[in-house]
């Protein structure tokens, strides 16, 4: 749907010279009054004032508004068309909102990073390189690795141990 702004309609009339005929403000073309020369004669100013006066009389509009008003039927048509546009935009907006919400919901539910093990294996390799600790060759131990960590520092523990305080102490809290 295309809505033509009233001013553009008048521009189109200008190009064909129709507005002057409609408003009765035809003027002779002369070299002195072209846009190229940028000269505005007293006659031209007078002509402008006449146009405003004529429109004010005929259409009862405020002469301070620097535009040419279209007819009431045109305005009604414009309003109808604009209302339709607003309604279309509202519907599009609602559809986009719904689509965005669905995507956001999916984003929260689905794992974002699928290459978890690739990242983890790479980090392990780097950890082994930095620490100098590599897997022990030979027969793998039967002990569950969780059990190997359980109580690793038990000889440094007592009843006063508070894991939160210990962690806070290294977090600078």
């Amino acid at each position: 749907m295309t809505v033509t702004h009233p001013a553009k309609k008048w521009d189109a009339l200008d190009k064909r010279g129709d507005r002057d005929r409609i408003l009765g403000t035809e003027r002779p073309q002369s070299g002195e009054e072209t846009w190229g020369s940028r000269e505005l004669s007293a006659q031209n100013i007078f002509l402008g004032e006449r146009v405003v006066a004529k429109m004010t009389r005929e259409w009862s509009i405020d002469p301070c508004i620097d535009t040419t008003a279209p007819s009431m039927s045109e305005l009604r048509q414009e309003i109808r068309e604009l209302r339709e546009m607003v309604r279309d935009l509202s519907e599009s907006h609602a559809a986009l909102e719904a689509r965005l919400s669905a995507l956001e919901e999916q984003f929260v539910k689905e794992p974002v990073i699928d290459n978890l093990w690739e990242i983890s294996d790479n980090n392990l390799k780097q950890l082994e390189e930095v620490s100098g600790i590599t897997r022990t060759p030979g027969k793998p131990t039967e002990q569950d690795p969780f059990d190997a960590l359980k109580g690793l520092l038990i000889e440094y523990s007592d009843d006063t141990v508070d894991s939160v305080e210990l962690v806070n102490s290294v977090r600078g809290k």
Partner: peptide, 11 residues
């Protein structure tokens, strides 16, 4: 805090 608790066997 969970790992620290686990290796210290916090009571």
């Amino acid at each position: 805090s969970l790992w620290v608790s686990y290796i210290l066997q916090e009571n």
